[in-house]
Design a binder for these strands. Structure first.
Lengths: 112, 112
DNA sequence: TCCATATTTCAATAATAATCGAAATATGGA
DNA sequence: TCCATATTTCGATTATTATTGAAATATGGA
């Protein structure tokens, strides 16, 4: 991931509402979540939510697919991966810093 | 790390100049870097740099110590660690996503 | 003390981002 | 076609952040 994309992704996540939205999407997994449901869960009014979803989509952290009358949003896990990789390089790259990896991702947990 | 701190840290990094500054600090390691040197390396004018350094410090991603006439800034690796942990939970937490951890941080490297 | 260097604060401005109601647009079903 | 529901766009407003030169402050050495 190059710097520009990283800044874009970081900006997208650096906002309370959007971080909440992204977390909801991550929890929802690949099945995703309809926009309306996200609004419901987060309490963000539709027009504001739409703005934030566009922002996340633009940063390729979310993806929208139409499903009937609904628009289903999903988290773009690979972008998140790439961002984590970028940040880790910027942190571990030839330096102290440690302990992030082992403890956090336990031995591959099966999604339900 | 709680959400507020995460948003703070993300905001601090979500800006081209600051990301550049933070990278420079990470490269400099625990020895850190004088403000003037950072200005030199990044090409950011002193007053702007000061603003950004304050921002990074406020997010506890950097730390300032006085050394004679210089102010030496260092990266706060532990905060970065915490941020990565937070993001990883928000990504790996019960979901697909993978591959971030194993390859990036090799088998625990002793800090010098 | 006085000077040179290092850094920060001030202040004014410009740029960007967030908020949200109301109106517009899409979609499927009656 | 017509209606109800889902979502987005518009537009006007407010809030926050970034940018920098110039002035202020701090520090060590002559």
């Amino acid at each position: 991931m190059e710097t520009n994309a990283a800044v874009l992704a970081l900006s997208a996540l650096a906002q309370t509402s959007r971080l909440a939205v992204f977390r909801a999407l991550v929890q929802a997994g690949p099945a995703g979540m309809a926009a309306g449901r996200i609004a419901e869960v987060t309490g963000i009014p539709p027009s504001s939510l739409s703005f934030h979803l566009k922002e996340l989509t633009h940063a390729v952290l979310a993806h929208a697919r139409q499903d009937g009358r609904f628009v289903i949003y999903t988290a773009q896990f690979d972008t998140m991966d790439a961002l984590l990789g970028f940040l880790t390089e910027n942190c571990c790259g030839g330096n102290p810093c440690a302990s992030v990896c082992a403890p956090v991702c336990p031995p591959s947990k099966e999604p339900t």
